[in-house]
């Protein structure tokens, strides 16, 4: 119980990401079907995204989009003059960097998943199956013939 209170609860985001990542890793290594391997890869990616986003969280902080009360052009023109008194408090806004990194990672992840699905589709066209062992058997058989 003590272990739960001191180690698990303050770090629960890391526990969830490790568990999710291991589910994905297990699917990628242990599963026989290529599509299931890809599902594992997606779960793995999602775990990494969760890890990054949870790193950027600050308790009580706002989204990293400060409201701009002053007019846009006015703010730009007066940027030099009002410098000191108007500095934002960095602890009041969530860390933007993990969000930026994951934003591109999500879309790139979708695009690469598309490539992976395209490759498995053309494997299915050639071998008639998506089970890894059956594909390996067919490759072995065809090399013995040739």
């Amino acid at each position: 119980m003590d272990f739960l209170r001191t180690s698990v609860i303050p770090h629960f985001n890391y526990w969830i990401y490790v568990i999710l990542m291991m589910i994905g890793l297990w699917a990628m290594i242990g599963k026989n079907n290529l599509i299931k391997k890809l599902i594992g890869m997606s779960i793995f990616q999602t775990a990494i995204i969760l890890f990054y986003v949870s790193i950027g969280v600050k308790t009580g902080a706002d989204i990293p989009i400060p409201a701009h009360h002053a007019h846009h052009d006015e703010a730009a023109a007066g940027a030099g003059a009002r410098e000191e008194e108007d500095k934002l408090d960095p602890d009041a806004f969530a860390n933007p960097l993990p969000h930026v990194l994951m934003l591109t990672a999500i879309v790139v992840g979708v695009a690469t998943l598309g490539v992976a699905l395209a490759i498995s589709q053309s494997i299915h066209k050639d071998f008639g199956t998506l089970e890894e062992d059956e594909i390996l058997e067919k490759i072995k058989a065809s090399t013995h013939d040739g």
């Binding site: 990293p64 730009a76 933007p96 930026v100």
Partner: peptide, 13 residues
């Protein structure tokens, strides 16, 4: 802290 002065863009991301 510096995005507003550097770029005048409210959305830091």
């Amino acid at each position: 802290t510096e995005t507003a002065a550097d770029t005048a863009v409210p959305n830091i991301v």
